[in-house]
Amino acid sequence: MEHQNLNLTLKVWRQKNASDAGHFETYPVSGISTEMSFLEMMDVLNEKLIAEKKEPIAFDHDCREGICGMCSMHINGRAHGPWKGTTTCQLHMRAFNDGDTITVEPWRASAFPVLKDLVVDRSSFDRIQRAGGYVSVNTGNAKDANNIPVAKENADLAFAAAACIGCGACVAACKNASAMLFVSAKVSQYALLPQGQPERTTRALNMVAQMDKEGFGSCTNTGACEAECPKEISVMNIARLNREFMNAGFMSNEG
């Protein structure tokens, strides 16, 4: 695609702090290169706001290469914008046309309260992870990498589940603000590996209990999470979580 400079209108959610009601603010931006990333475009806007002695727009970002999961933005009704399998930092301005109006909102979920502007608090995910998203290892010397044989099929499925970057797009996209895709990825990645077996049943029960406690909704299987996940985590993992949960709840000695 040929390089182009875009003139755009941005409608951005501005909110002073967690208790402020918040509102949309409209900003014209001009001369945006189609080669910029969406966050670079936001940087350009912020530079302009700073030069005008206005408060810049707060947004989360870290790696800017699609692996940290920080850059949560709901762009024109889509988590991380219109491209499939991409984070906001990997979304490029060639996805838009000259003259477009772009609406930018924070993730909306009671379990992800807005801290400021586009920044939300995703520590509920950390607490779910702490409830069971780990394995026990023996202390002492590190073991040989391929000490324990793992079936290739399982290794691949576990690896695909482990690709989850905890970005929260699944929650943002779900009509119930359900965290099932995230939790299912975390539970699956260990359930499929021999190293994950000792805590297998407690993990499923405790992570689901924490998920409910944090105020995420239940799963209606609409598939919006999978459609929006930047790591294309499969909803097959949700069925596996349901299986793990039923096994733990009905068959194990836990609980």
């Binding site: 409608k11 918040g22 949309f24 709901h74 024109n76 009704g77 889509r78 609406t103 909102e105 909306r108 979920a109 009671s110 379990a111 807005v114 996209a173 009509k175 119930n176 603000a177 359900s178 105020g215 995420f216 909704g217 609409t222 598939g223 919006a224 459609a227 929006e228």
Partner: peptide
């Protein structure tokens, strides 16, 4: 109840 503040723009039938 899990999304007290709604989105201004929704994806409609694009994702489900």
């Amino acid at each position: 109840t899990h999304r007290p503040v709604k989105y201004a723009v929704n994806p409609g039938n694009e994702t489900s």
